[in-house]
Amino acid sequence: MNRAAPYLGPMVSTTGYRDLIEEAGDMARFTGRFFREVLRPRYEWEELLRQAFINGYRSLPLVAVTAFIMGLVLTVQSRPTLERFGAESMLPAMVAISVVREIGPVITALICAGKIGSSMGAELGSMKVTEQIDAMEVSGTNPFKYLVVTRVVSTTLMVPVLVVLADAIAIWASYIGVNFKDTVSWPLFHQQVFDSLIFSDLLPAFFKSFFFGFAIGIVGCYKGFHTERGTEGVGRASHSAVVVASLMIFMLDLVAVQITDILGLN
């Protein structure tokens, strides 16, 4: 690692490529360790539940508000274009499809990357620099299991749940948006939405949100666990956890769209 690299770390440093590859290798090793440890017994159920509560339930208000606004704005802004083609009756379907397939998962994941990723980076980072992680290790608790495995499993499971809730809230907000100008009853709206959505809209989107959750957890924990250089390092860990997790989300999204394309699920 180039210790003098600016705080965006591998992304923009001058010796960028080597750092980037080194860091990717480290992260791959870290991920490998996760898979080895996640199955080995002595499961930290209590801590897992606590993390699921923190990462899932506590993120809900932020995700809900964003999803509501997203659904509403998308509806209001799409209307003029659809009207121009005389297709305003397609509005619910269009919003539903774009929310469920793309916007819901990606926006929710990005919010989680910002909220959960940064707090994980900062929390584990400060535990690392104040030797709290070492203290766990010497007291006979495997800190990787206790801190990393529980956090990664919790985000992997909770982000998809948040995505589903965000989708539902966005669609409900869209119903309100549609009714700004039209009057569409909820049953009719409901029917239009669900007629337009097919299984292959839901499944890949749901599936990829697991990967988003996993990426957020792994990146946040990796950055926290590898914090160096005191409190300055903690800020850097928190910051780069968000940057790297957000980038990973977009890259995974890109991969996911290719895969669904190849599998003919589009």
């Binding site: 709290q132 203290a135 766990m136 290790e137 010497v138």
Partner: peptide
């Protein structure tokens, strides 16, 4: 190794108390 470590105590230079836990929880952890 973990079992062995429980037979050894380690007092850190910086104490390394878990700062998200109370004193009681700190003592409960080991």
């Amino acid at each position: 190794l973990d079992r062995m470590r429980m037979r050894i105590g380690f007092l850190f230079q910086s104490n390394a108390l878990y700062d998200s836990m109370t004193v009681r929880q700190n003592l409960e952890f080991p």
